[in-house]
Design a protein around this nucleic acid. Structure first.
Length: 264
DNA sequence: AACGAAGCCAACCGCTCCACG
DNA sequence: TCGTGGAGCGGTTGGCTTCGT
């Protein structure tokens, strides 16, 4: 019996998907729709777990995905705005970005955080006046950041486990030197923009890496969110803002951001 | 040209939620 | 009402690519 289970386990395939597997998966979805993932394996169509199949479909095979396409400035700003609203609710944020998956958003965000951590680290290593004149990153042409951002980043990076891991690499002194933002944030709360939208370098860090397009356009989602994922359709104790999210959004959600962007 | 650092992305893992028997 | 399996989500990891020295 154990041997059988072991054999069964061995049959589960992992790693990169082949074109043939994709084809099988696509055919299955064509026939049955994007559900019954586990039946794909039970029918012997693929030696992949249902979970794996679903992930592959959602992230790569789904129609209208913007695969291999960089985040536009507008998309990036949307992510930043929505992250400030919802925190690390990537699936929710992704509903505002057609063609983007939660994985995309997540990768985008963690990428930015990493970069930020590195910048902070480097700036703290730099000479005493430091934050305001961080040395250019070795090799990479990184613009200086103003110290306002540090406070923001400190709070934000503490808000999630992965972020705090990144923060471990950051010289605490650099953070201590940062002026208070005057925004009280608690753990696991999304950060608010505070004064940081005034920071001309803000989007250089959390925003586009290479975009020259101004980011301060109309601060609203550029389309309606897709239907809320199943998970968001019910109201749970810790998700009660879902209703607010679904019904009150997006009429005034960006007022704060708007004000920030308009102020000199 | 070689090397290392950083960026990017696909995929896996563990956990939670929900539907259903 | 409770247990279970499937689905979905967020976090993490590892490999490949790009870029600068």
């Amino acid at each position: 019996m154990k041997k059988m289970e072991a054999t069964k386990k061995e049959e589960i395939k992992k790693g990169p998907w082949k074109a043939e597997e994709d084809e099988v998966l696509i055919n299955h979805v064509k026939r049955y729709g994007p559900r019954d993932w586990s039946s794909i394996r039970s029918k012997g169509l693929l030696q992949r777990t249902g979970k794996s199949c679903r992930l592959r479909w959602v992230n790569k095979l789904r129609p209208n995905l913007k695969n291999g396409c960089k985040f536009s400035a507008e998309e990036e700003k949307t992510v930043i705005d929505l992250q400030s609203q919802f925190g690390n609710k990537w699936a929710r944020i992704a509903t505002y970005l057609p063609g983007r998956t939660d994985n995309d958003v997540k990768n985008f965000w963690s990428s930015r955080l990493k970069r930020l951590a590195r910048i902070l680290h480097n700036s703290s290593d730099a000479s005493s006046s430091s934050c305001f004149n961080p040395k250019p990153n070795k090799g990479k042409n990184v613009k200086p950041i103003q110290s306002q951002s540090f406070g923001l980043v400190e709070e934000e990076t503490r808000a999630s486990s992965s972020s705090s891991k990144i923060l471990d690499q950051v010289d605490e002194e650099a953070l201590i030197r940062s002026p208070e933002l005057g925004i009280k944030l608690e753990n696991h709360q999304p950060f608010t923009f505070g004064t940081d939208l005034d920071d001309p370098f803000f989007y250089d860090i959390l925003g586009p890496a290479d975009s020259s397009v101004p980011l301060f356009g109309p601060p609203q989602p550029f389309f309606e969110p897709s239907p809320a994922p199943r998970r968001f359709r019910h109201v749970s104790k810790d998700d009660e803002e879902s209703d607010v999210f679904l019904h009150d959004f997006p009429a005034d959600m960006f007022d704060q951001v708007d004000d920030q962007t308009r102020s000199p």
